[in-house]
Lab assay of single mutants.
Amino acid sequence: TYYTVKSGDTLNKIAAQYGVSVANLRSWSGISGDLIFVGQKLIVKKG
Rank of each mutant, 00 (worst) to 15 (best):
T4F: 12
Q17T: 12
G47K: 10
Y18S: 05
N24K: 10
W28N: 05
L25R: 00
T10W: 03
L25Q: 00
Y2N: 07
S32Y: 10
S32E: 15
G30Y: 06
L42F: 03
F37M: 09
D34M: 09
T10L: 04
G8P: 02
T4E: 10
V20Y: 03
L35I: 14
S29M: 04
V22A: 08
Y2C: 11
G8V: 02
A16F: 11
V20G: 01
V20L: 08
G33L: 08
D9H: 02
L35F: 13
S32L: 11
F37G: 06
Q40M: 11
A15N: 00
K41G: 06
I31M: 09
V22D: 04
R26I: 14
N12D: 15
L11I: 09
V44M: 07
L42E: 00
S21G: 05
I31V: 10
G33Q: 08
S27P: 01
S29G: 07
Y18M: 10
G30K: 09
Y18A: 06
I43T: 10
L11R: 00
S21L: 08
K13L: 11
V38T: 08
V22C: 08
L42K: 01
A15R: 00
A23L: 08
W28K: 02
A23P: 09
Q40P: 02
L25I: 15
L35E: 15
K6Q: 13
D34F: 09
K13R: 10
A15C: 06
Y2D: 07
T10P: 00
K41L: 15
N24T: 13
A15T: 02
F37Q: 10
V38I: 11
V38L: 08
A23D: 15
D34L: 07
G30E: 09
I36Y: 03
K13M: 12
L42S: 00
A23C: 12
G8Q: 05
Y3R: 01
F37Y: 14
A16P: 01
Y18Q: 07
L25C: 04
V22Y: 02
I31E: 03
R26M: 14
N24Y: 07
L11N: 00
K6I: 09
I36V: 09
G39Y: 04
L42V: 08
S27C: 12
V44Q: 01
K46C: 15
Q17N: 10
N12Y: 14
K13T: 15
K45Y: 15
G33A: 08
I31S: 03
Y18K: 04
G30R: 07
S32C: 12
V44L: 09
S21E: 08
R26L: 12
S29R: 01
K45I: 11
I31N: 03
V5A: 04
I14Q: 00
T4N: 06
S7P: 15
N24G: 06
R26Q: 13
N12K: 14
N24A: 12
G30M: 08
Y2W: 12
N24D: 15
I14L: 07
L35K: 14
Q40S: 04
R26V: 12
V22N: 03
Q40R: 03
Q40T: 06
G39A: 03
K41D: 06
T10I: 04
V5E: 00
N24V: 12
G30T: 06
V44D: 03
K41V: 15
Y3K: 01
T10Q: 05
S27M: 14
F37T: 10
A16C: 11
W28L: 06
T4S: 07
G30A: 09
S29Y: 03
A16T: 11
R26D: 02
I14N: 00
T10V: 04
Q17S: 11
V22S: 06
G8E: 05
G47D: 14
V44T: 06
D34S: 09
V20N: 02
K46W: 15
G8F: 05
D9T: 01
R26Y: 06
Y18F: 15
L25M: 06
V5S: 02
K46A: 14
I43L: 15
V20P: 00
V20D: 02
L42G: 00
S7Y: 14
G33Y: 06
A16D: 11
S27W: 10
K46T: 13
R26E: 08
W28G: 03
K46Q: 14
V20M: 08
G47V: 13
A15M: 02
G47C: 11
S21H: 05
D34H: 09
G19N: 12
K6R: 11
A23M: 09
G33V: 07
N12E: 15
S7Q: 15
I36S: 01
Y18H: 12
S27I: 14
K46E: 13
T1H: 13
A15S: 08
V22L: 09
R26T: 10
T4L: 10
G19C: 09
V44W: 04
G19S: 09
V5D: 01
G39I: 06
V38C: 07
L25H: 00
G39N: 06
K41F: 08
V5N: 00
K41P: 05
W28T: 05
S29C: 07
L42M: 07
S32K: 13
L42N: 00
V44H: 02
Y2I: 14
Y3A: 03
K46D: 13
I36K: 00
I14C: 02
G33S: 11
L42H: 02
S21M: 06
T4V: 14
L11H: 02
K41R: 13
S7W: 12
T1G: 10
T10G: 02
K41I: 15
V44C: 04
Q40W: 06
N12R: 12
V5L: 03
I36G: 01
K41Q: 14
K6D: 04
A16I: 11
G8S: 05
V38P: 13
T1M: 14
Y2G: 06
L25G: 01
Q17V: 12
K6P: 01
D9W: 03
D34W: 10
G47L: 13
I31W: 07
S32Q: 13
G33W: 06
Y3G: 01
A15I: 02
D9M: 02
G30I: 05
G33T: 10
L35R: 12
S32A: 11
I14F: 01
K46P: 15
Q40I: 06
G19R: 09
K6F: 04
I14R: 00
K46G: 14
V44F: 06
I43S: 07
G33R: 05
W28F: 05
T4A: 07
G47R: 10
I36L: 12
L42W: 01
Y18E: 06
S29E: 02
Q17R: 12
L35V: 14
V20Q: 06
I36Q: 02
V5K: 01
S32D: 13
K6Y: 04
G33H: 09
L11E: 01
K45L: 12
L35M: 13
A15E: 01
L25S: 00
A23T: 10
I31F: 09
S21W: 05
